[in-house]
Protein backbone atom coordinates (compact mmCIF):
# COMPACT_ATOMS: atom_id res chain seq x y z
CA UNK A 1 0.00 0.00 0.00
CA UNK A 2 2.93 2.26 0.71
CA UNK A 3 4.48 1.36 -2.61
CA UNK A 4 1.26 2.03 -4.46
CA UNK A 5 1.27 5.62 -3.30
CA UNK A 6 4.96 6.00 -4.14
CA UNK A 7 4.33 4.65 -7.65
CA UNK A 8 1.41 7.00 -8.18
CA UNK A 9 3.68 9.89 -7.14
CA UNK A 10 6.32 8.61 -9.58
CA UNK A 11 3.77 8.44 -12.40
CA UNK A 12 2.56 11.95 -11.64
CA UNK A 13 6.14 13.20 -11.69
CA UNK A 14 6.85 11.55 -15.03
CA UNK A 15 3.75 13.10 -16.56
CA UNK A 16 4.49 16.53 -15.09
CA UNK A 17 7.98 16.53 -16.61
CA UNK A 18 7.13 14.69 -19.79
CA UNK A 19 9.40 16.74 -22.06
CA UNK A 20 12.32 16.59 -19.63
CA UNK A 21 11.79 12.85 -19.23
CA UNK A 22 11.86 12.46 -23.02
CA UNK A 23 15.03 14.53 -23.22
CA UNK A 24 16.69 12.36 -20.57
CA UNK A 25 15.58 9.15 -22.30
CA UNK A 26 16.96 10.32 -25.64
CA UNK A 27 20.26 11.51 -24.20
CA UNK A 28 20.62 8.23 -22.35
CA UNK A 29 19.72 6.31 -25.49
CA UNK A 30 22.34 7.99 -27.68
CA UNK A 31 25.12 8.08 -25.11
CA UNK A 32 24.57 4.51 -23.94
CA UNK A 33 24.42 3.28 -27.55
CA UNK A 34 27.73 4.96 -28.24
CA UNK A 35 29.16 3.54 -25.04
CA UNK A 36 27.93 0.06 -26.02
CA UNK A 37 29.43 0.51 -29.50
CA UNK A 38 32.72 1.35 -27.78
CA UNK A 39 32.49 -1.86 -25.78
CA UNK A 40 31.74 -3.83 -28.95
CA UNK A 41 34.66 -2.22 -30.80
CA UNK A 42 36.87 -3.11 -27.87
CA UNK A 43 35.88 -6.75 -28.05
CA UNK A 44 36.23 -6.81 -31.84
CA UNK A 45 39.77 -5.49 -31.59
CA UNK A 46 40.59 -8.04 -28.89
CA UNK A 47 39.25 -10.87 -31.06
CA UNK A 48 41.32 -9.76 -34.00
CA UNK A 49 44.44 -9.32 -31.91
CA UNK A 50 43.98 -12.78 -30.46
CA UNK A 51 43.58 -14.41 -33.82
CA UNK A 52 46.39 -12.59 -35.60
CA UNK A 53 48.90 -12.49 -32.84
CA UNK A 54 48.64 -16.28 -32.65
CA UNK A 55 49.79 -16.51 -36.23
CA UNK A 56 52.60 -14.06 -35.83
CA UNK A 57 56.04 -15.54 -35.98
CA UNK A 58 59.48 -14.00 -35.97
CA UNK A 59 61.48 -14.78 -39.10
CA UNK A 60 65.28 -14.80 -38.83
CA UNK A 61 66.73 -14.70 -42.33
CA UNK A 62 70.26 -16.00 -42.79
CA UNK A 63 73.01 -14.63 -44.96
CA UNK A 64 73.45 -15.71 -48.60
CA UNK A 65 76.14 -14.61 -51.06
CA UNK A 66 73.54 -12.36 -52.72
CA UNK A 67 71.76 -10.98 -49.67
CA UNK A 68 74.20 -9.56 -47.15
CA UNK A 69 73.91 -7.76 -43.80
CA UNK A 70 76.24 -6.37 -41.11
CA UNK A 71 76.71 -9.80 -39.53
CA UNK A 72 77.47 -11.71 -42.72
CA UNK A 73 80.82 -13.04 -43.89
CA UNK A 74 81.28 -11.32 -47.26
CA UNK A 75 80.04 -13.37 -50.19
CA UNK A 76 79.17 -16.42 -48.12
CA UNK A 77 76.18 -18.36 -46.81
CA UNK A 78 75.73 -18.61 -43.07
CA UNK A 79 77.88 -21.51 -41.85
CA UNK A 80 76.58 -24.61 -40.05
CA UNK A 81 78.35 -23.50 -36.88
CA UNK A 82 76.62 -20.11 -37.05
CA UNK A 83 73.22 -21.80 -37.58
CA UNK A 84 73.97 -24.00 -34.57
CA UNK A 85 74.60 -20.95 -32.35
CA UNK A 86 71.43 -19.22 -33.57
CA UNK A 87 69.29 -22.30 -32.97
CA UNK A 88 70.73 -22.81 -29.46
CA UNK A 89 70.11 -19.17 -28.61
CA UNK A 90 66.49 -19.46 -29.70
CA UNK A 91 65.85 -22.76 -27.93
CA UNK A 92 67.30 -21.47 -24.65
CA UNK A 93 65.11 -18.33 -24.69
CA UNK A 94 62.23 -18.73 -22.20
CA UNK A 95 59.89 -16.64 -24.37
CA UNK A 96 60.04 -19.12 -27.24
CA UNK A 97 57.23 -21.69 -27.33
CA UNK A 98 58.07 -25.38 -26.63
CA UNK A 99 58.47 -26.59 -30.20
CA UNK A 100 58.32 -23.12 -31.65
CA UNK A 101 61.58 -23.14 -33.64
CA UNK A 102 61.34 -24.27 -37.21
CA UNK A 103 64.08 -24.19 -39.85
CA UNK A 104 63.15 -23.35 -43.41
CA UNK A 105 65.64 -24.57 -46.03
CA UNK A 106 66.25 -22.93 -49.39
CA UNK A 107 64.23 -25.67 -51.08
CA UNK A 108 61.26 -25.15 -48.75
CA UNK A 109 61.40 -21.39 -49.30
CA UNK A 110 61.53 -22.02 -53.04
CA UNK A 111 58.50 -24.33 -52.90
CA UNK A 112 56.57 -21.74 -50.90
CA UNK A 113 57.56 -19.08 -53.42
CA UNK A 114 56.40 -21.26 -56.31
CA UNK A 115 53.10 -21.87 -54.56
CA UNK A 116 52.53 -18.21 -53.68
CA UNK A 117 53.27 -16.94 -57.20
CA UNK A 118 51.70 -19.81 -59.17
CA UNK A 119 50.65 -18.54 -62.62
CA UNK A 120 52.74 -15.37 -62.36
CA UNK A 121 55.78 -14.65 -64.54
CA UNK A 122 57.81 -13.82 -61.39
CA UNK A 123 57.58 -17.48 -60.52
CA UNK A 124 60.43 -18.44 -62.79
CA UNK A 125 62.66 -15.46 -61.96
CA UNK A 126 64.43 -17.08 -59.00
CA UNK A 127 66.40 -20.29 -58.52
CA UNK A 128 66.62 -22.47 -55.40
CA UNK A 129 70.10 -21.17 -54.67
CA UNK A 130 68.93 -17.58 -54.63
CA UNK A 131 66.43 -18.32 -51.83
CA UNK A 132 67.17 -17.49 -48.20
CA UNK A 133 67.32 -19.95 -45.34
CA UNK A 134 65.47 -18.84 -42.20
CA UNK A 135 64.41 -19.78 -38.69
CA UNK A 136 60.69 -19.30 -37.96
CA UNK A 137 59.98 -18.76 -34.29
CA UNK A 138 56.66 -18.89 -32.42
CA UNK A 139 56.41 -17.13 -29.10
CA UNK A 140 54.60 -18.09 -25.90
CA UNK A 141 53.24 -14.57 -25.65
CA UNK A 142 53.20 -12.72 -28.98
CA UNK A 143 53.33 -9.37 -27.17
CA UNK A 144 56.80 -10.20 -25.78
CA UNK A 145 58.81 -10.28 -28.94
CA UNK A 146 61.50 -7.71 -28.26
CA UNK A 147 63.70 -9.97 -26.09
CA UNK A 148 63.85 -12.71 -28.72
CA UNK A 149 64.49 -10.26 -31.53
CA UNK A 150 67.37 -8.57 -29.74
CA UNK A 151 68.92 -11.88 -28.62
CA UNK A 152 69.53 -13.06 -32.19
CA UNK A 153 69.85 -9.75 -33.99
CA UNK A 154 73.61 -9.45 -33.37
CA UNK A 155 74.60 -13.06 -34.06
CA UNK A 156 76.94 -13.92 -36.94
CA UNK A 157 75.12 -15.30 -39.95
CA UNK A 158 71.87 -13.42 -39.31
CA UNK A 159 71.01 -11.20 -42.24
CA UNK A 160 67.76 -9.75 -40.99
CA UNK A 161 65.19 -10.32 -38.24
CA UNK A 162 61.64 -9.71 -39.33
CA UNK A 163 58.76 -9.34 -36.94
CA UNK A 164 55.29 -9.14 -38.48
CA UNK A 165 54.08 -7.06 -35.58
CA UNK A 166 55.77 -4.03 -37.00
CA UNK A 167 53.36 -4.24 -39.91
CA UNK A 168 50.31 -4.97 -37.79
CA UNK A 169 50.99 -2.41 -35.06
CA UNK A 170 49.99 0.69 -37.04
CA UNK A 171 46.77 -1.07 -37.93
CA UNK A 172 46.09 -1.97 -34.31
CA UNK A 173 47.05 1.51 -33.21
CA UNK A 174 44.36 2.84 -35.52
CA UNK A 175 41.86 0.35 -34.09
CA UNK A 176 42.84 1.30 -30.53
CA UNK A 177 42.37 4.94 -31.41
CA UNK A 178 38.86 4.28 -32.71
CA UNK A 179 38.11 2.13 -29.70
CA UNK A 180 39.20 4.75 -27.16
CA UNK A 181 37.78 7.59 -29.21
CA UNK A 182 34.34 5.99 -29.01
CA UNK A 183 34.67 5.45 -25.29
CA UNK A 184 35.86 9.01 -24.57
CA UNK A 185 33.09 10.50 -26.72
CA UNK A 186 30.47 8.35 -25.05
CA UNK A 187 31.99 9.23 -21.66
CA UNK A 188 31.43 12.92 -22.37
CA UNK A 189 27.87 12.21 -23.46
CA UNK A 190 27.30 10.10 -20.36
CA UNK A 191 28.48 12.97 -18.15
CA UNK A 192 26.03 15.22 -19.99
CA UNK A 193 23.30 12.65 -19.39
CA UNK A 194 24.14 12.48 -15.67
CA UNK A 195 24.05 16.28 -15.36
CA UNK A 196 20.77 16.35 -17.23
CA UNK A 197 19.25 13.82 -14.87
CA UNK A 198 20.44 15.90 -11.94
CA UNK A 199 18.80 18.99 -13.43
CA UNK A 200 15.58 17.15 -14.21
CA UNK A 201 15.34 15.93 -10.66
CA UNK A 202 15.98 19.45 -9.42
CA UNK A 203 13.16 20.77 -11.59
CA UNK A 204 10.88 17.97 -10.47
CA UNK A 205 11.69 18.72 -6.84
CA UNK A 206 10.94 22.38 -7.46
CA UNK A 207 7.64 21.55 -9.18
CA UNK A 208 6.64 19.45 -6.17
CA UNK A 209 8.02 21.72 -3.45
CA UNK A 210 4.58 22.15 -1.90
CA UNK A 211 4.06 18.41 -1.57
CA UNK A 212 7.59 17.92 -0.32
CA UNK A 213 7.17 20.68 2.25
CA UNK A 214 4.01 19.04 3.56
CA UNK A 215 5.61 15.58 3.54
CA UNK A 216 8.48 16.84 5.65
CA UNK A 217 6.09 18.64 7.96
CA UNK A 218 3.91 15.62 8.67
CA UNK A 219 6.95 13.39 9.14
CA UNK A 220 7.35 11.41 5.93
CA UNK A 221 10.70 9.65 5.94
CA UNK A 222 13.53 10.80 3.71
CA UNK A 223 13.38 7.52 1.84
CA UNK A 224 9.70 8.01 1.18
CA UNK A 225 10.31 11.51 -0.17
CA UNK A 226 13.31 10.41 -2.25
CA UNK A 227 11.91 7.20 -3.75
CA UNK A 228 9.57 8.75 -6.35
CA UNK A 229 12.49 10.80 -7.69
CA UNK A 230 14.73 7.76 -7.72
CA UNK A 231 12.11 5.68 -9.51
CA UNK A 232 11.62 8.47 -12.02
CA UNK A 233 15.33 8.57 -12.83
CA UNK A 234 15.63 4.78 -12.88
CA UNK A 235 12.63 4.56 -15.20
CA UNK A 236 14.15 7.03 -17.67
CA UNK A 237 17.50 5.23 -17.46
CA UNK A 238 15.96 1.82 -18.03
CA UNK A 239 14.00 3.01 -21.05
CA UNK A 240 17.14 4.68 -22.42
CA UNK A 241 19.21 1.55 -21.73
CA UNK A 242 16.59 -0.73 -23.34
CA UNK A 243 16.57 1.43 -26.46
CA UNK A 244 20.37 1.42 -26.50
CA UNK A 245 20.42 -2.39 -26.18
CA UNK A 246 17.99 -2.63 -29.11
CA UNK A 247 20.20 -0.31 -31.13
CA UNK A 248 23.27 -2.43 -30.37
CA UNK A 249 21.48 -5.66 -31.27
CA UNK A 250 20.25 -4.14 -34.54
CA UNK A 251 23.74 -2.81 -35.29
CA UNK A 252 25.38 -6.17 -34.67
CA UNK A 253 22.77 -8.02 -36.68
CA UNK A 254 22.48 -5.72 -39.70
CA UNK A 255 26.01 -4.33 -39.90
CA UNK A 256 28.25 -7.10 -38.55
CA UNK A 257 26.34 -10.31 -39.22
CA UNK A 258 24.64 -9.37 -42.49
CA UNK A 259 27.25 -7.14 -44.11
CA UNK A 260 30.73 -7.33 -42.64
CA UNK A 261 30.96 -11.03 -41.85
CA UNK A 262 30.01 -12.36 -45.33
CA UNK A 263 32.26 -9.75 -46.95
CA UNK A 264 35.40 -10.34 -44.87
CA UNK A 265 35.58 -13.94 -43.71
CA UNK A 266 39.29 -13.93 -42.91
CA UNK A 267 38.87 -12.18 -39.56
CA UNK A 268 36.79 -13.26 -36.58
CA UNK A 269 33.68 -11.15 -35.88
CA UNK A 270 31.85 -10.43 -32.65
CA UNK A 271 28.64 -12.38 -32.07
CA UNK A 272 25.73 -12.43 -29.63
CA UNK A 273 27.84 -13.34 -26.60
CA UNK A 274 29.95 -10.18 -27.00
CA UNK A 275 26.78 -8.18 -27.67
CA UNK A 276 25.23 -9.54 -24.48
CA UNK A 277 28.27 -8.44 -22.52
CA UNK A 278 28.06 -4.95 -24.01
CA UNK A 279 24.34 -4.78 -23.16
CA UNK A 280 25.09 -5.73 -19.58
CA UNK A 281 27.66 -2.93 -19.43
CA UNK A 282 25.12 -0.51 -20.87
CA UNK A 283 22.46 -1.52 -18.32
CA UNK A 284 24.82 -1.20 -15.35
CA UNK A 285 26.23 2.16 -16.47
CA UNK A 286 22.68 3.39 -17.21
CA UNK A 287 21.51 2.51 -13.71
CA UNK A 288 24.53 4.05 -12.01
CA UNK A 289 24.06 7.19 -14.11
CA UNK A 290 20.48 7.47 -12.92
CA UNK A 291 20.95 6.63 -9.26
CA UNK A 292 24.09 8.61 -8.41
CA UNK A 293 23.01 12.06 -9.68
CA UNK A 294 19.55 11.56 -8.18
CA UNK A 295 20.94 10.78 -4.74
CA UNK A 296 23.36 13.71 -4.95
CA UNK A 297 20.61 16.11 -6.08
CA UNK A 298 17.98 14.95 -3.61
CA UNK A 299 20.47 15.14 -0.76
CA UNK A 300 21.02 18.73 -1.71
CA UNK A 301 17.43 19.80 -2.33
CA UNK A 302 15.36 17.61 -0.04
CA UNK A 303 17.37 17.99 3.13
CA UNK A 304 15.28 17.54 6.28
Amino acid sequence: MRLRHIFSETGAGLRQNLTMTLAVVMTMWVSLSLFGAGLLANQQVDLMKGRWYDKIEISIFLCTPDVQGDNCDPGQDATDAQKQVIQQTLLSNPEVAGDGVYFETKQMAYDEFQRAYAGSPIRDSLTVDQMQESFRVKLKNPEEYEGVVSSVQGLRGVQKVQDLRQYLDPFFNALNFIQWGTIVASGLLLIAAALQIGNTIRLAAFARRREIGIMRLVGASNLYITLPFLFEAVFSALVGAALACGTLAAGVYFVVMQKAEPAIRSIPWIGWSQTGLAMLGVAVVGLVLAVVPTLVTTRKYLRV
Partner: peptide, 20 residues
Protein backbone atom coordinates in the same frame (compact mmCIF):
# COMPACT_ATOMS: atom_id res chain seq x y z
CA UNK B 1 16.86 9.96 10.37
CA UNK B 2 14.74 10.11 13.54
CA UNK B 3 13.43 13.59 12.82
CA UNK B 4 10.47 12.39 10.69
CA UNK B 5 9.23 10.13 13.50
CA UNK B 6 9.52 13.05 15.94
CA UNK B 7 7.56 15.33 13.60
CA UNK B 8 4.69 12.85 13.47
CA UNK B 9 3.95 13.84 17.05
CA UNK B 10 3.59 17.47 16.07
CA UNK B 11 0.82 18.91 13.91
CA UNK B 12 1.49 22.24 12.22
CA UNK B 13 -0.86 24.92 10.88
CA UNK B 14 0.18 28.06 8.98
CA UNK B 15 -1.27 31.41 8.11
CA UNK B 16 -1.28 30.50 4.39
CA UNK B 17 -2.95 27.07 4.93
CA UNK B 18 -0.49 25.27 2.61
CA UNK B 19 -3.03 22.96 1.00
CA UNK B 20 -2.40 21.07 -2.23
Amino acid sequence: WKIPAMRRQIGTVFQDFRLL
